[in-house]
């Protein structure tokens, strides 16, 4: 049994709850995102990659990849100098590295589109998008990578979006991967 360590921070419009280990029985109402990888480590992803939640609903990432560590890190200048890709009045989060079986949770209160990435796996296309509430949709957010991020419209329509396996999506992810590697 893994002992649960819990730290809860309240900062402005965001509530952060960091969890190490598995918080059994405390998943009620939380939206779950799995961090996954294939057997040889050549492919890594969030499942689902796109998620629609209501303001104040907890989102929990859990590392289900036995062979790697992952992060869920908001696009924000505080994090590796990335551009902000979240509502301006929301507070960015960073899970830090999660080992297999470890979880991290965040509760987002500000409506809007939040993009996040995995620190070591952004070049490999390990990114995700969360839509909180029903923000006005005005075209893709800055820095959008079609085929890597699901569209806001699709997330609002379907609630939860898994990675597309169409040939076109696979090709766009491969192009993104190659471009990230050589830039």
């Amino acid at each position: 049994m893994i002992v649960t360590r819990r730290r809860v921070l309240r900062i402005g419009g965001v509530v952060l709850a960091g969890l190490a280990g598995t918080a059994s029985g405390s998943t009620g109402g939380a939206a779950e995102i799995a961090m996954r990888g294939n057997e040889d480590g050549s492919d890594v992803w969030y499942d689902p990659v796109g998620l629609h939640v209501r303001p104040g609903q907890t989102i929990r990432w859990t590392n289900h990849d036995a062979g790697n560590a992952h992060t869920a890190t908001a696009y924000h200048p505080h994090h590796a100098g990335r551009p902000a890709r979240m509502p301006p009045d929301a507070v960015p989060w960073d899970s830090d590295y999660l080992l297999p079986g470890e979880s991290f949770a965040v509760t987002l209160l500000v409506e809007g589109v939040y993009d996040y990435f995995c620190l070591p796996h952004e070049p490999a296309g390990m990114v995700g998008r969360i839509v909180v509430g029903s923000p006005p949709v005005a075209g893709p957010p800055p820095g959008d990578v079609p085929g890597v991020f699901p569209s806001v419209e699709q997330i609002l329509r379907e609630g939860s979006v898994r990675r597309s396996r169409t040939a076109a999506a696979l090709r766009r992810r491969r192009e993104h991967f190659v471009a990230s590697c050589i830039s």
């Binding site: 990888g37 040889d40 480590g41 050549s42 492919d43 890594v44 062979g67 790697n68 560590a69 590295y97 620190l119 070591p120 796996h121 070049p123 490999a124 390990m126 991967f177 990230s180 590697c181």
Partner: peptide, 11 residues
């Protein structure tokens, strides 16, 4: 290929 991992944080 490996997507990257702590220690070698790039593909």
């Amino acid at each position: 290929l490996n997507a990257g991992h702590p220690g070698v944080e790039m593909p």
